[in-house]
């Protein structure tokens, strides 16, 4: 089933070039945004753009799109674990450093 699919279908080089151009465009955007000196919003913007880039790489270059659903759940689990430990650590430092 899924195993055969992922063996047969290969994403063509053209798609990769489009993704690559998008990534470069996003890099240019993030540098430009940083030059605007938006202070507090600049961080959020740059994290947001970085996440968009990472999503592109994961979906297309790492072709998560074509992988079985179990792998997507596992990835979600790993990211959830990281998010939770960051949040819980910040439940300490946010308050302690003020």
């Amino acid at each position: 089933m899924t195993e055969k699919e992922s063996q047969v279908q290969a994403i063509g080089p053209k798609a990769y070039i489009v993704v690559w151009l998008c990534l470069l465009a996003l890099t240019a955007t993030t540098v430009t945004v940083a030059r605007l000196h938006l202070t507090a919003y600049a961080v959020i913007a740059s994290i947001f753009i970085a996440t968009a880039k990472a999503a592109l790489v994961v979906t297309f270059f790492m072709h998560l799109r074509r992988e079985p659903w179990i792998l997507k759940i596992m990835l979600f689990l790993a990211l959830l674990a990281l998010t939770l430990i960051v949040l819980l650590t910040f439940s300490d430092v946010w308050i302690r450093y003020k």
Binding site: A42, V43, S46, A50, A54, V57
Partner: peptide, 11 residues
């Protein structure tokens, strides 16, 4: 992709 903005673009 994450290291770049966090170190270079926070001026």
């Amino acid at each position: 992709i994450y290291l770049f903005p966090l170190f270079y673009l926070i001026t």
